[in-house]
Design a protein around this nucleic acid. Structure first.
Lengths: 333, 333
DNA sequence: TACAGGCGCTTAAACGTATTAGCATAAAAT
DNA sequence: ATTTTATGCTAATACGTTTAAGCGCCTGTA
């Protein structure tokens, strides 16, 4: 078992001081007027013995970890997984690493995860805030920690955020169904007052107003037990007999499709907010409101890195447009 | 902006030494014979001022981080996502945190991620090794770092691992298709000699032997461009006309189903290795070989934590049984 | 000849914690 | 009365880095 090499070993080997080695390793050789000859000798020797600095010690000393904490609702949801992937790539190319966690929309869990990141002194945070997270976020803000929210924001808090235009996305989806001639267009959403849910409801209602239709809203509790949610939704279907359903999230759409399938009934028209890799595979293929994933990731990482570089202190609140991808499930038969 | 509280602040406030506070905070009050009165005073005061130790400093001093690094092929694949979720819960309840990363089966990326975890001094590793990772893993082993592989292992390396019985799983799937009366049963697999792929091929071949059928094997390159893989698979379908297809992974099955759908041909019987949340939603529903996810997670975390506790030094190589979930896609019409 | 300043490097202190060795006092044993 | 042992706590060092301050030497200028 080989002993771990320290910066002091390098210094000793070469008969110079630790400081000099440190300067060279941190690219300050020029600035600190270390001779080129010595710089080269040190670099060569470092490579030869395979020295790697202890990042914990570095972080302790500098207060920086070069790590960004990504707190995301559900990393197995393709929407979030893709955002995470883009963010990771972009951060990497700028010298930052990402560590991420899923909250499953559980407040206690989210708070614990933010605390974990805080304990580990991550340099910045990208968060999909669950409800009840205001206090935690406020505490990050008070500590001046670089932070940007996405997918939703906390209405009472002045934070950076990046969201899509949920109102317009939901309006377009609902209007599309109305244009197709559907009359009983239902909205299936969560028991949740998160901003994105509120806005999707809002967009739906505006389209209902425009087309002078009746609203049919079903709220579902999807957290614990999918089968219960399915049964709940089934009774709604039986009772209200919608001819079209707009699901406010992709996983609601998936549970809803399971419910419809089990019922063996004529399938209503369907639109999902958020696309899913497999929607093109279903029969019929599923129409979806698709958020601009790469643009969202871009904005997020730029806002955060600009803050980390100290370039930007102004609040950034970005709203990006969504696109309606029309597939078979929403077309009039 | 409030100043961060240190252990020395606590000591000063109470007029005692840092050592004493540290002992008490680490539950060594009894062992170090600190009086109960003082212990209580310290604990009360710590709670009152909301002191949190600096974990970086702790880790630097102790060499422990209480963090486990989870290096996983693709966290957005439901199989891996569920494993991760179980592992996380189990680790948490035993005082460990998990940080995870997706490798996308890219060797360079995997090496970089392991290095990241190493730099951050995680206490142990759970890894789905991509091909070409032998050197990296060997280096972890040489450094005596607690480690367990899963889903596959590296044949030339003596490591702990947990895998499912891929041979039997693949045999059962293929045999089931044969029993249904299919004659031209194809295997779709990856260009990969990872152990799980080799074993699935093996199981398929054994069943082909048992039933005296002809093998039809298609290898697909799925890494870069899904559409290319789809086209490639389509030409295989056209050429070989299989009446049944056994896909060696769930994402192969998904790409395959897309290919079949695009072709608008009579659908062959289908079985997937690894289940997927949405397979029950497809038409027809998709038969799958399902791995015992919770049992795998259990074994993984137990093996690792026993190593971390120093209880166990013996090699643990665990093989768990898979189950065939028969759905519509594999039944004779 | 004296002095200023540039050059190339080093000394020493810090980051916040854990832990070894030991000190002063009091009680118990000889 | 002296030595031993137990009690309750602390001083000092270590973990592996970064960095402010400074030191001796050389060169050029007055």
């Amino acid at each position: 078992m080989k002993k771990k090499i320290l910066i002091s070993d390098i210094a000793k080997d070469l008969g110079i001081s630790v400081t000099t080695v440190s300067f060279i390793l941190n690219g300050k050789a020029k600035e600190k007027r270390i001779s080129e000859g010595l710089t080269k000798r040190v670099l060569d020797h470092v490579k030869k013995v395979g020295y790697k600095p202890n990042e914990l010690a570095k972080s302790l000393r500098t207060g920086k970890t070069k790590i960004i904490g990504l707190v995301i609702e559900d990393i197995s949801n393709p929407f979030f997984a893709n955002i995470a992937r883009f963010i990771e790539a972009k951060a990497y190319s700028r010298g930052y690493r990402i560590i991420y966690c899923s909250t499953d929309n559980d407040v206690d869990r989210t708070i614990a995860l933010v605390q974990l990141f805080r304990d580990r002194h991550v340099d910045g945070y990208i968060i999909t805030p669950s409800e009840g997270l205001a206090e935690t976020i406020q505490s990050l803000l008070s500590s001046q920690l670089p932070l940007v929210l996405f997918d939703r924001y906390l209405p009472n808090l002045q934070t950076n955020y990046v969201v899509s235009d949920n109102i317009k996305g939901a309006y377009d989806a609902t209007a599309h169904l109305a244009e197709q001639g559907y009359k009983r267009i239902a909205l299936v959403t969560l028991y949740s007052s998160q901003t994105q849910m509120r806005d999707r409801m809002d967009g739906y209602m505006r389209a209902i107003d425009t087309y002078k239709l009746q609203p049919y809203v079903k709220k579902v509790n999807v957290t614990h037990d999918e089968q219960a949610a399915i049964a709940d939704f089934q009774s709604f279907l039986a009772e209200q007999q919608p001819d079209a359903v707009f699901f406010a999230t992709n996983y609601l759409a998936i549970s809803g499709l399971k419910a419809i399938k089990q019922l063996d009934m004529p399938m209503p028209a369907v639109v999902s907010y958020d696309d899913h890799t497999l929607f093109k595979l279903f029969s019929p293929t599923i129409t979806a409101v698709s958020q601009p994933i790469e643009a969202i990731a871009d904005e997020l990482i730029n806002i955060l890195l600009n803050q980390l570089d100290g370039k930007e202190r102004a609040l950034k609140q970005v709203v990006l447009p969504s696109a309606l991808l029309i597939r078979e499930s929403s077309l009039k038969k």
